[in-house]
Simulated scan of single mutants.
Amino acid sequence: MKPDFPFYAGLPVHLNGRHWLMLMAALVLAFGILALLPLQGFPQSLIPALLFVILPLLALRRVAGPHWTALFGPVGLRQLGQMVAFAALTLVGSLAMGLILSQFVTFSHNPVAVSLGSMTAPELVARLIPTLPQLVGEELLGILPFLAVLWVCVTRMHLSRRVGIMLALVISSLLFGAAHLPTYDWNWAQALIGIGTARVLLTLAYIVTRNLWVSAGAHVLNDWTGFLFAFAVGHAPIGTSA
């Protein structure tokens, strides 16, 4: 039988309200460092990306002890296949939602994707390396609030687990989308609906597998597909007329 989600219902360790506040504070601090204290150039750019992962995990280790690893599962061929499948689902779902939204709103460009078109191959590699820990951090930004809201719904509001999961999925995805507002020039529809839709699909990867490595792998594959496409388009040969 698939294990239940960790932490929200006392397993594998009990977390109280103070513990969840500590985890959320660590996430806010880590995200603030990433967003407000960017370091340009490699390897300096690794520092905020690594802190984005390390600070929430240290907080989780503080409140959950050795059980902090319950967020993660094994990685084998099955999990790699799940990463690919959920990355494809996220890509298709994001494109579909993008097409729908484009009928009603004007999109803002992701500055990272725009910059990739003019980079050399070594610059591209240097830019992509820090995204590995950063995207794992983004999964913590998505999954820990999901579990926190689930804890509130089930433990404090005494809602059913099913209702708690649905509410946690929606609320955590909206929060994740809101965190991307500055990236997209405060375009609320693009951040909350567009990015929120991608977050829903990535969180589904965790809900199905109970393994943050799977949702993180799917996130990396999804984002890197977009980055590499932007790089390829920027370096495509331009035909000239005779």
Score class of each variant (00 low, 15 high):
6 P>F: 02
169 L>I: 07
220 V>L: 15
135 L>E: 07
171 I>G: 01
69 T>I: 04
165 I>R: 00
195 I>A: 10
83 M>Q: 13
144 L>G: 06
158 H>V: 00
87 A>M: 13
72 F>T: 05
58 L>H: 12
95 L>I: 11
90 T>M: 10
194 G>R: 07
35 A>P: 01
22 M>G: 14
234 G>Q: 09
56 P>E: 04
124 L>D: 09
94 S>C: 01
14 H>I: 01
30 A>G: 08
155 T>D: 14
199 R>H: 10
209 T>Q: 12
117 G>I: 02
19 H>K: 02
93 G>E: 04
2 K>W: 07
30 A>I: 06
100 I>W: 15
124 L>C: 11
222 N>E: 06
194 G>P: 05
142 G>M: 09
1 M>L: 02
111 P>V: 02
115 S>I: 03
206 Y>S: 02
61 R>I: 01
77 L>H: 14
232 A>Y: 10
3 P>N: 05
122 P>E: 09
36 L>K: 13
106 T>G: 11
30 A>Q: 10
173 S>T: 03
234 G>W: 10
33 I>F: 13
133 P>H: 09
38 P>S: 09
77 L>V: 04
157 M>G: 00
149 V>K: 00
28 V>Q: 10
28 V>D: 06
59 A>K: 12
41 G>P: 13
137 G>R: 05
60 L>G: 11
142 G>F: 02
15 L>R: 04
34 L>I: 02
238 I>M: 13
134 Q>W: 02
180 H>P: 07
121 A>Y: 15
187 N>D: 09
158 H>F: 00
41 G>H: 15
219 H>N: 06
217 G>Q: 09
84 V>D: 08
